[in-house]
Design a binder for these strands. Structure first.
Lengths: 109, 109
DNA sequence: CCGATATTTAACACATGCGTTAAACAAAGG
DNA sequence: CCTTTGTTTAACGCATGTGTTAAATATCGG
């Protein structure tokens, strides 16, 4: 399976998507923090994290007995590159990419 | 399920992804054309097309007994919007969105 | 070394996904 | 009408995905 399809597959699950969003919003977090609030056993979350790791969307490093998870940009790049390469299909005359960017805060220079 | 997750889910299947790519490359096509070359029964492709329709990624119109399929921009927009909103995670200092765009051919004005 | 804490792996049950073939439908044309 | 062509739906079987609980691992601090 390509990187891109693996990324789509991994993100298509609501639990995994919310994990990625949480890591984007809160930065590096221990697995335990990702378990709390998801209404699911630690074992289930641990397996979701494995899927995200194998899709290249997150990475983790050991700190003592904890595993600190964070977003891995490479996996997202596969999606971003595809999206950009096909932008002609989602852009409209009144909604160019440049304007889409302006709806967001400007990136740091 | 949100539009975004439905789109990810629909595109995570290799057959469905290839259908969307083919429609992007070749434009509107009858279901029969999408069946040929996929090495799979028409019934299977028809069900894949239904999944893509329900995810808002393709649409179809009747022409005689044929169904002409094409890409539906709205579904792709969900992905594009999310990707752009999170671009900070896949951009790098040497690879800004603007430069990524320049790697592609310029969009029509 | 022992027990407590953090996380992953194993084994299992159940739901969903995807392909098949056969049947159903719909439009077109003789 | 009746048949042919194009496409979808139904019924089924098998593989994969996702959650559970229990057990395994690993690190830390006496």
């Amino acid at each position: 399976m390509t990187d891109l399809l693996a990324a789509f597959s991994a993100l298509s699950d609501p639990t995994r998507f919310s994990i990625v969003e949480q890591l984007m919003d809160e930065g590096e977090l221990p697995a335990g923090d990702l378990i709390r609030g998801k209404g699911m056993s630690g074992a289930a979350i641990s397996r979701h994290l494995k899927v995200l790791r194998e899709a290249g969307l997150v990475r983790h490093r050991a700190k003592g007995t904890m595993r600190l998870y964070s977003v891995q940009p490479e996996g997202l790049r596969a999606i971003a590159d595809w999206t950009i390469s096909r932008r002609r299909f989602w852009e409209t005359s009144l909604d160019r990419l440049g304007e889409a960017l302006e709806r967001e805060n400007t990136w740091p220079t």
